[in-house]
């Protein structure tokens, strides 16, 4: 597989370490009243779709960027890749 690194172009998937669902970017507030329930969902409940999925990959043997890759888990077609940092910052800006 090739991962289209947002800054470095296509790179072999062997350079990356896989983590999983990009929902892990949305860490709940640990000080909120419902933190227990929210963390239970965050830690244990993930989507595992057959189809388009947003997932986290770490360019471990590369620039050490975390990347959000949009991938079809059935065909392995990759529809896009963004720096996770940019995604997380945009989400925080949106929430604020």
């Amino acid at each position: 597989m090739l991962i289209p690194h947002p800054l470095l172009g296509p790179r072999d998937a062997q350079e990356f370490t896989y983590l999983g669902d990009a929902a892990l970017l949305n860490r709940p507030d640990g000080m909120a009243a419902d933190a227990q329930a929210a963390f239970n969902d965050y830690v244990y409940l993930r989507d595992n779709p057959a189809g388009v999925h947003r997932e986290l990959w770490f360019h471990e043997q590369g620039d050490r960027s975390w990347v959000v890759v949009t991938r079809n888990t059935v065909t392995h077609e990759i529809l896009g890749a963004e720096l996770a940092r940019d995604v997380a910052l945009a989400a925080k800006a949106g929430a604020a």
Binding site: L56, F58, S65, A84, R85, A88, L89, K92
Partner: peptide, 11 residues
């Protein structure tokens, strides 16, 4: 640590 830095608290 990089996950925490880039994904959780990029600010």
């Amino acid at each position: 640590m990089e996950f925490a830095r880039q994904c959780l608290w990029p600010e």
